[in-house]
Design a binder for these strands. Structure first.
Lengths: 257, 257
DNA sequence: CGCGATATTGAGGCTGCTCAAGCCTTGTGG
DNA sequence: CCACAAGGCTTGAGCAGCCTCAATATCGCG
């Protein structure tokens, strides 16, 4: 189905014969922009080649879903480019976003039966997908990969817990300030979390409604807080999807944490 | 220092000569109540013996801390018995509990530099602690252990995300109902998450204040919600630290999720 | 230009917080 | 065994922050 369909690039590649496939896919990895930051970093060339055999590039359009909550977890993936959201619905139909995935993040639930949340591309995105069963087998045979995956999962757990703190204890102003600051550092090209190269001008990958879903607020509250930050000269918002941080220090004060 | 001091049992054990040490510690593992549920499950006997050489039993009194937020992460541990909390402080001094750890859970941050939260025993507890550096080395050499650790971390991440949903989207009533239900299943002797053997009578390991810190509420709100559940006949609360679930179904209705 | 989707702004209400007083439990000392 | 104190818990009153509902404005696309 849609979630499993290959992107045009992958289709082309699989049209050739076996040797060519390996070569071409290997080229994918060698030129991959997240090669050293994603979990594949640290693998030997021959391991990369093997991984290539089971991985496929896939291009997602903004709004497209990668897998569905509760489905048998058939896919895992590396994010190459773009921003994706992990989300789930409350029983009364509201959405809560559980996490955002950026370039070089790992997506999905290896060694599990079901995907516990929806994955949807917020921007146009490129991912490198694997059939879960194949990935699991490969990971078990390559401890170096499992180790990278473990480190990444531990980091993600730390990040999620920090987010919990935000949801549980911050007010609307603090939530929005934290959110903008985090976004400006996660969207920075290096992705390395050194705050120095954090962006001043952010192209928001989320609508107001989605920001509200991230922060556990309503769209109106988000809108009012943005308006307040503008009035106070902390940010500028030339268009709906753009934000410029004018006074990072004061914004950090508002974020508190 | 306090955090590193050995419990009396370990002191005794280390008093003997080398051969005896290994044997005695091995006995610890063989009789360990979480042997098959914790990450050590699936290790060979000789691996267990090696692990024994670097692990120590430690008994914690309720209220005692295991490591401190921001400290260099020197310890990791398995929870053998009892309930511990992971928590952090907001800059304005309120506490947010980030997670609870029960029997057979893994504690700490391997492969990281700092412990990103406080760990404190809520009840008297027994843990099996390792120096982080030694544990890291052992884990790198034993992929089977790393694999178990990865699975556990992934599960913990899923659980944390569900908790996030609760903090972001639930009202006080839903939060408390969910909390009581989760507690009754996590405290059940099997620990297996089959809801069948969930407890009806819970001995609360947390004070009202701590419950409030878990749920992102105030102590007054927690108290009022408990009073309401009692009035409505959903629970009984014979003493401050005891709760009996009288009508699980209706409680689940209140929890919504 | 005009329509639909998205966002902003306003008014009013409710949930949960704050502040405050009193109660119950537990432990200590006479 | 009782008196008292201290800490934890409950209950109440009032308030603030955020949500809800509603009207209006703006953006983006045909």
């Amino acid at each position: 189905m849609a979630a499993l369909a290959l992107g045009p690039a992958a289709d082309t590649v699989y049209g050739g014969d076996m040797d060519i496939i390996a070569t071409r896919l290997s080229d994918f990895c060698h030129s991959c922009s997240v090669r050293n930051r994603a979990i594949c970093g640290g693998l030997h060339d021959d391991e990369i080649a093997l991984l290539n055999n089971i991985g496929r590039r896939r291009t997602l359009r903004a709004g497209e879903q990668l897998s569905w909550e509760g489905d048998e977890a058939v896919l895992v993936a590396n994010v190459i480019d773009g921003v994706l959201k992990l989300s789930t619905l409350t029983s009364d139909g509201r959405e809560q976003i559980l996490g955002l995935s950026y370039s070089s993040d790992f997506l999905g639930r290896p060694f599990g039966q079901t995907t516990p949340y929806d994955v949807e591309a917020l921007t146009d995105a490129q991912v490198c997908v694997f059939q879960r069963a194949e990935f699991d087998r490969f990971a078990r045979e390559h401890p170096q990969l499992e180790h990278k995956l473990l480190e990444r999962t531990l980091t993600e757990l730390d990040r999620t817990r920090k987010w919990m703190l935000m949801l549980g204890r911050m007010n609307a102003e603090q939530k929005l300030a934290s959110f903008l600051l985090e976004l400006s550092s996660r969207l920075a090209p290096g992705d390395c979390s050194s705050d120095d190269d954090a962006l001043q001008s952010i192209e928001l990958p989320l609508s107001r409604q989605q920001i509200a879903d991230v922060l556990g607020l309503t769209i109106e509250t988000v809108s009012r807080q943005i308006a307040k930050f503008r009035r106070d000269g902390l940010i500028d918002a030339p268009s709906r999807r753009q934000v410029t941080i004018l006074d990072r220090e004061k914004l950090e004060d508002r974020a508190v944490c």
